[in-house]
Design a protein around this nucleic acid. Structure first.
Lengths: 208, 201
DNA sequence: AAGTTACTTTCAAAAGC
DNA sequence: GCTTTAAAAAGTAACTT
């Protein structure tokens, strides 16, 4: 056994072993969550940098890999909510969030500010909405941002409400709950954002 | 009429007290009805005072942590009350133990809305993740405090060891944000905000 | 849909796991 | 790192009524 250990130690450092574990975990997340390959590749690069800066010490490979993937998806402009990502890992939300903050601080990476517009496509896909509706929703969000009513709000909730309003204006008859589920927020949140957006942007919704 | 600069109010003071003597927490827990003591869960005995509403964590080593005070006066009164309480229940503790303020939490108001997206791009050591928390988290270097900044202009300052640090930090934050041009006052509300917070200093 | 309660974030100290 | 205390901010969530 000693010889086997020596052989392994010679060809595979702890760094490499850890990296391989992370790569396997990211591969698993990719297939279970349906994350695009570019995001996984970006996550691998982030994880590699984290390993080089020894940020993985004392932390679980799963938590750091999940945090790297979360960051990678945002960098690739294909954000996945942290709460959704956490459902596929055995690491706790708290641990993943802590790793993410560590990566933000220690790596010289720029993660774009979370933009509610990026949450529209996923909602639209799930509800099979038209390009017209998507365009209208994007316009609503841009106006909302100019009106200064988006500060501190969950981008997913803002996106859900914008798409809901855009759908109503295009004669769609799906409920607030459909949009809430698609966005991963509650109906209460969609309703609150909807009221604020309609009021601030003077949006009149056709009474069906 | 002047809703000029920023205002703040101390919400909580955390302090440590060193009684310099070993304490029998088991005995104290038996004699003090209001005491909460679950050594399996936490090594400290928990006492909640009601006069000034302050909570104390008392440890075997004679060290304690007092939280909940809104001013130094309440803190001093609480320490006196705690000392008397412990003495009355068999613990031989000194009358005026050493008290050290460890952290001060204050809420505040910049009286102007803040463009958090712009602010996070221009401030060093700032983080803004609306997906997880509505406030921008700003780590100020000097004074060394952490400030949570909300879009409404309301803030929370924590980590300060003195009220002076809070005052300095809040004013400095206001100046920095103003300089960065990320503060906005509602067009028709330059001089309002109805609330009664005249007692903020 | 309104209300209530409760959790997210930040901080520091204590003793011990 | 965790456990426990307290407190505020604004948003979101989960129950009740």
């Amino acid at each position: 056994r000693l010889r086997k250990w020596q052989t392994r130690a010679r060809v595979q450092t702890s760094y490499e072993r850890n990296f391989i574990q992370a790569a396997q975990e990211l591969e698993r997340l990719k297939s279970s969550m349906g994350v695009p390959r570019p995001c996984v590749e970006q996550a691998l690069e982030i994880y590699r940098q984290a390993l080089e800066k020894e940020l993985v010490r004392g932390r679980s490979v799963e938590a750091m890999a999940a945090a790297a993937l979360y960051m990678a998806c945002r960098m690739m402009r294909m954000p996945r909510p942290l709460d959704e990502l956490v459902r596929y890992t055995k690491a706790s939300r708290r641990e993943v969030a802590r790793c993410y903050r560590l990566l933000l601080r220690e790596l010289n990476v720029k993660v774009p500010i979370s933009d509610p517009v990026l949450y529209i496509s996923r909602i639209a896909e799930q509800l099979k909405l038209s390009g017209e509706v998507v365009k209208a929703a994007i316009d609503i969000l841009q106006r909302a941002k100019k009106a200064g009513i988006t500060a501190g709000k969950d981008p997913a909730g803002l996106a859900a409400a914008a798409v809901y309003i855009a759908s109503l204006m295009h004669g769609d008859n799906r409920t607030q709950k459909d949009f809430a589920v698609a966005a991963g927020v509650t109906e209460v949140t969609v309703r609150n954002r909807y009221k604020e957006l309609a009021k601030a942007l003077n949006i009149k919704v056709p009474v069906k | 009429m002047s809703t000029t600069g920023p205002t703040y109010r101390i919400e909580n003071i955390v302090a440590t007290v060193n009684l310099q003597v070993e304490l029998d927490l088991e005995m104290l827990a038996e004699r003090l009805a209001m005491a909460e003591y679950n050594p399996d869960q936490f090594p400290g005995l928990i006492l909640r005072l009601t006069k000034p509403r302050i909570s104390a964590l008392i440890f075997r080593t004679g060290k304690m942590v007092a939280t909940g005070a809104k001013n130094e006066e309440d803190l001093k009164n609480a320490v006196r009350a705690l000392v008397k309480l412990l003495k009355d229940h068999g613990a031989d503790v000194p009358f005026d133990p050493e008290v050290q303020v460890q952290n001060i939490v204050a809420s505040g108001n910049l009286h102007a809305e803040v463009d958090l997206e712009q602010a996070v791009l221009m401030l060093e050591n700032a983080m803004y993740e609306p997906e997880q928390f509505p406030g921008l988290i700003y780590r100020m270097t000097n004074p060394r405090v952490v400030i949570l900044i909300f879009g409404s202009g309301k803030i929370v300052c924590t980590g300060a060891k003195s009220e002076r640090d809070v005052a300095t930090a809040v004013q400095k934050l206001y100046n920095q944000l103003k300089e960065l041009g990320v503060l906005y006052v509602e067009e028709g509300a330059e001089e309002e905000e109805s609330e009664e917070e005249l007692e903020e200093l």
